[in-house]
């Protein structure tokens, strides 16, 4: 299990996702200039909290829940 993600990073991920339709975590990491593993951890926690969801269209994307 990965270490707990920082609330600050989770907030920035949500902020980024609010601006786009959907994104790969790879792209989120690049946009936020963060390590992908940290972004992954943040996205996983956000998924468990039901604040983001995954979309599979050829590959999987992350998006804000219900957006």
């Amino acid at each position: 299990m990965a270490e707990a993600a920082s609330e600050e990073l989770k907030a920035r991920v949500l902020e980024y996702l609010a601006k786009v339709d959907k994104a790969k975590s790879h792209d989120i990491a690049q946009a936020l200039k963060e390590k992908k593993s940290l972004v992954d951890a943040a996205v996983r926690e956000l998924a468990r909290e039901d604040r983001v969801e995954f979309l599979y269209i050829g590959t999987s994307y992350v998006k804000l829940k219900g957006k």
Partner: peptide, 10 residues
């Protein structure tokens, strides 16, 4: 559209 269960992406 998207379907799934809470907390899961697959």
């Amino acid at each position: 559209g998207i379907v799934g269960v809470r907390g899961y992406g697959g």
